[in-house]
Amino acid sequence: MRNLTTAIAAFLLAGSAYAEPVAPSDVVFEDGAIPVSLTGTPGDPVAGREVMIARGLGNCVACHTAEAYADVPFHGEVGPPLDFVGERWTEAELRGIIADAKMMFDGTIMPSFYKNAGYIRPGNAFTGKAAEGELPPLLSAQQVEDVVAYLMTIK
């Protein structure tokens, strides 16, 4: 009941801008980029930084280093360093790269973070057991927006 009230309040507050996030299967790519926000809500760079660092979320640090988060230990070298990434790419391109990097870089090793189908032997997180039912994407739509917002600050 309380939740319902909050939901209605949120709906009223957001007014006409309020919408369901775009589902992973409905995302439209243009040359590997996603021009339209997945949620309509601006990303939060502070939350985005956390997503990039956290092992259980983006774990981007596993593959990418950058001066901007030099305080975090153990950066990987599998992907390119992300220094100046906010200058090299537009917001739409970064959104596309994070949602499904394979659309921008054919066959890349980088995982697709906003996709939830087409896997071979998908597992239930890191248990080694089979996934049950439909998998949630690795990141939520808002988390993708948060990461994009953070990357845009890396200049």
Partner: peptide, 21 residues
């Protein structure tokens, strides 16, 4: 394989000598 879509070759052929975390 899996939701991260990584093959043995992605890590041990394409990226040997690199740090992953």
């Amino acid at each position: 394989f899996g939701q991260l879509e990584l093959a043995c070759a992605n890590c041990h052929e394409d990226n040997y000598d690199n740090l992953i975390r």
